[in-house]
Amino acid sequence: MIWLSFIFAVGFVGIHLFSKRLKLLKVLPRSRFLSIAGGISVAYVFMHLLPELGVFQKELQGKLENGGLQFLENHIYLIAMAGLVIFYALEHSVKTSKRKNKQSGNPQATSGIFWVHIISFALYNGVISYLLVREEYEDVWGMLLFFIAMGVHFMTNDKGLRATHQEEYDRYGRWLLAFSILIGWGIGAFADVHEWIISVLTAFLAGGVILNVLKEELPEERESSLLAFCLGLTSYSILLLLL
Rank of each mutant, 00 (worst) to 15 (best):
D170E: 15
I210Y: 02
E216L: 12
D139F: 05
K100D: 11
G232W: 01
G142N: 03
E216S: 14
I15E: 01
I15Q: 03
K23V: 11
T164Y: 02
G54A: 08
P219K: 08
E221L: 11
F229E: 06
W196F: 13
P219A: 09
L69W: 12
G151R: 10
L144A: 15
F147N: 05
Q166I: 11
G160V: 09
L201N: 03
A178P: 00
R222F: 11
E217K: 13
L90Y: 09
Q166G: 02
A80R: 00
S97R: 07
I118F: 00
E168L: 11
L176V: 14
Y169A: 02
G39H: 08
S19D: 08
E220G: 11
Q70W: 09
M143D: 04
R32L: 09
L182G: 02
I36M: 12
I2L: 15
S235M: 14
G142I: 01
L239Y: 05
I2S: 12
H48W: 12
V193C: 04
V55G: 10
S35L: 05
W141Y: 11
C230S: 15
L241R: 09
V200L: 06
A37Q: 02
G188Y: 07
L22V: 11
R162G: 10
L233V: 00
L176D: 03
A89P: 01
A37T: 05
L240C: 00
L50Y: 00
F71K: 06
V10T: 10
L233Q: 01
V85K: 00
L226Y: 15
N74R: 13
N66A: 13
G68D: 08
R99E: 15
A191D: 07
A203P: 05
G83D: 01
T156F: 07
R162A: 13
A203F: 01
S199E: 09
I187Y: 06
G39R: 07
V209E: 00
G173P: 04
E216H: 15
H92E: 13
G67I: 12
L132H: 05
F12V: 00
I76Y: 03
W196T: 07
G83T: 00
P29K: 05
V45Q: 01
I7N: 03
F146C: 03
L25F: 07
R162T: 10
P29V: 01
W141K: 10
H16C: 04
F179C: 06
L201H: 03
Y169V: 00
N101S: 07
I7K: 05
L227Q: 14
V10E: 05
S35E: 07
V27D: 09
Q108G: 06
E135S: 15
R21K: 15
N125S: 03
Y130F: 15
L240H: 00
L145R: 09
N74D: 13
I40N: 01
V13F: 06
F18M: 10
Y137C: 05
N106A: 06
G14N: 09
A122C: 12
G112H: 09
M155E: 05
T164K: 10
L24H: 14
K98E: 13
G160K: 14
G67P: 12
R171Y: 07
G11E: 10
S120I: 07
I2P: 08
A178I: 00
S235A: 15
V10F: 10
S224T: 11
G62C: 04
I40V: 14
Y124F: 13
I40H: 03
F6D: 02
M143H: 02
V200I: 12
G188T: 06
G142R: 02
N74E: 13
G207R: 03
M150L: 15
